[in-house]
Amino acid sequence: MRQLTSILSTATSVAALLGSLMLAPAMATAAEEAKAMTPIEQGNKLAFDNKKGNCLACHQIAKGELAGDIGPPLVGMQARFPDKAKLRAQIWDSTRANINSMMPPFGRNKILTEDEIDKVVEFIYSL
């Protein structure tokens, strides 16, 4: 797999990793589509979207392809985080727990909205 992935252009994946600077205006179709999805499904989409959570840049997550290995694999999250609020806090601002954390502070720096974080939490908690 690594052999294969190494052929992929860095630029593509770097751009993918850090996402574009554009926030596409929410389109009607996307909104309708979102309505049809459960919060967990919406959270999954946000987590995998390289312009949103882009969690796969650093974490292995079930069904996510070409994941990075900078952070721990996200599995067994309910056992890891009996307190769901702690999980949300980790995603909102990981630097509170670890000042040198490499994980972007999704809430503090408004990378995701509060609502988006809630959905990502639902998804991660289902893992």
């Binding site: 690594r2 992935t5 990793l17 994941a67 990075g68 630097t95 490499m102 972007p104």
Partner: peptide, 19 residues
Amino acid sequence: NLACADCHISSAGKHIRAD
């Protein structure tokens, strides 16, 4: 919120996505 050092010291040799 990332430093050059985060990627090119602490995480050197690791993969960020496929890179």
